[in-house]
Amino acid sequence: MTVEPNIIEVKNLKKAYGENVVLKDISFTVKKSEKVVLIGPSGGGKSTLLRCLNRLEDFSGQVIFENQDLSAASKEKLRALRQKMGMVFQQFNLFPHKTVLENITFAPIKLKISSLQAAQKKALDLLEQVGLKNKANAYPQSLSGGQQQRVAIARALAMDPEVMLFDEPTSALDPEMVGDVLQVMEKLATEGMTMIIVTHEMGFAQEVADKVIFMDQGQIADSGSPAYIFKETANPRTKEFISKVM
């Protein structure tokens, strides 16, 4: 197997809200088409770390994405970099005043990445892939949570991202909806997308991850292959967490 280059390098990332330090000196790398899953107890800093990767949160330290320092990027540069990092949120955050199709085509058209026709064609293809082509003209509020999340994934994919960031994508879903969303994510993983995923779905983590990072108290407490984290690790905090959630 060829060694893929690093697509993201996080170096000494720190974040604090006033006195409250939430991320303490985080460093890790993500290779192209690698699947990295962040797990850990609530309040451990997983979501905050993910949100630092596309600078939705300010931080100190460095995030290098495709050899460019995101932390020092100008506004325009940051926008260009964000276009290549798709993000999927726990609360979906679809635009309620736009149809499903408009949700997906809005950014590519507005940013002059594609023409209206090309964007619509692509959006319909993506909707077909997530099994929602018949909902193109519906408004988000008429969809179930699982459907909304699949549209949100399609919206992020419409930008042709290099990396997809998932922030607890199934945590707000009814249990019977979780499977559909995970299935779409698995398919994306098999197609070679680079993915960084914060999740509580341990089965999914074991199956899809190349690397699992266990975060606790704002630090990377443990990391390694799924086999290592879920079975072999000697770290007592990891073991305790895994035993509670599995």
């Binding site: 939705l56 926008r79 964000r82 950014a107 940013l111 992020a156 930008m159």
Partner: peptide, 27 residues
């Protein structure tokens, strides 16, 4: 309007102005 709407706009690479005028204000 929830902060998530702004974040969704920004995460797609839209400018703060576009996010405000096309996403937040209409709602």
């Amino acid at each position: 309007i929830s902060r998530g709407q702004t974040e969704a706009g920004l995460s797609l690479g839209l400018s703060e102005k576009t996010t405000m005028f096309s996403i937040v204000l209409p709602q």
